[in-house]
Write a protein that binds this DNA or RNA. Structure first.
Length: 274
DNA sequence: TCATTTTTTCCTGGTT
DNA sequence: CAACCAGGAAAAAATG
């Protein structure tokens, strides 16, 4: 790790992403594909096993928890797999430390782009994104149990040697789902995390899965931020949304503007679903 | 590297 | 008129 990650932070500000390349003569000059690795280091989904291990060490250290309390072997996986674990899985794999790890990962998945400098560059002042990390809520992806407490305080001294975590867990995750990387999941997660949703999207009919964009351009900006594409617009985002109709991830809701509805192939938005 | 799936870009034309 | 909606096409990015 840390072997000169090729100028990523500062030099990135000058990458001309062509705000409007409506010229037919500018075929993306972009000489070389040199610096093209920044989405990987920051997003947990792309971590290697080693990076997952590093993250574990770091979180343990941060919370002053003896690393020996946690069964590292239960986390012998890459970021991809790590991100597909549910809240419950974390409890299973790390006992009382599970929530802490889950919380940490959730934050990273959400705002792990750069560190704290988000929200000020391109967002309108009216949006008030002042605090990117307010506090944790519940699982981002599929809600398994809303009754679970967000973060039961990291008891300084867990000292629970008698955990029955001998639970080897050989049958790890079966389904590899690139969580949070798809647009509809991104939208869903915003809806499921009111804490982080400053009036961007709102449920129109919770049980039917109908929702409406309140700040269409702001959502597009947020999506663009996640994809490192500052030129994302609602116009383009909505095109992607319309492609979901065919796949029945979304159902068409005509008549009402900015209104969409989750379809039968959309998972994890329902309150009681699993 | 390749095949396939998803998303992005752009556009023409219609609607609210 | 501005902001959306519908999709077609094609290119680019993401994934396995």
């Amino acid at each position: 790790m840390s072997v000169t990650p090729t100028t990523t932070l500062d030099s990135q500000l000058t990458t001309t992403w062509g705000p409007n390349n409506s010229y037919p003569d500018v075929p993306m000059v972009m000489s070389g594909y040199t610096s093209r690795l920044w989405p990987h280091d920051s997003q947990p989904q792309f971590w290697s096993k080693y990076q997952v291990w590093e993250w574990l060490q770091q979180v343990m250290d941060m919370h002053q928890i003896d690393a020996s309390n946690i069964p590292f072997q239960n986390f012998d996986m890459d970021g991809h797999q790590l991100c597909s674990l549910s809240y419950q899985d974390f409890i299973r794999a790390a006992g009382s430390v599970g929530p802490i790890l889950f919380h940490s990962l959730t934050e990273l998945k959400w705002s792990g782009q750069y560190h704290v400098e988000i929200g000020q560059l391109e967002l309108k002042p009216e949006l008030d994104f002042s605090c990117p990390f307010p506090d944790v809520s519940y699982p981002p992806g599929e809600i398994y149990d809303p009754s679970i407490h967000p973060l039961p305080v990291a008891s300084p001294t867990p000292s629970s040697p008698d955990i029955k975590r001998s639970y080897s867990r050989p049958h790890q995750v079966k389904k590899h789902n690139p969580r949070g990387t798809h647009l509809w999941e991104f939208i869903r997660d915003i809806l499921l995390n009111p804490e982080r949703n400053p009036g961007l999207i709102k449920w129109e009919d919770r049980t039917e899965g109908v929702f409406r964009f309140l700040k269409s351009e702001a959502v597009a900006q947020l999506w663009g931020k996640k994809k490192n594409n500052s030129s994302m617009t609602y116009e383009k985002l909505s095109r992607a949304m319309r492609y979901y109709y065919k796949r029945e991830i979304l159902e068409r809701v005509d008549g009402r503007r900015l209104v969409y509805k989750f379809g039968r192939n959309a998972r994890g938005w329902r309150e009681s679903e699993k």
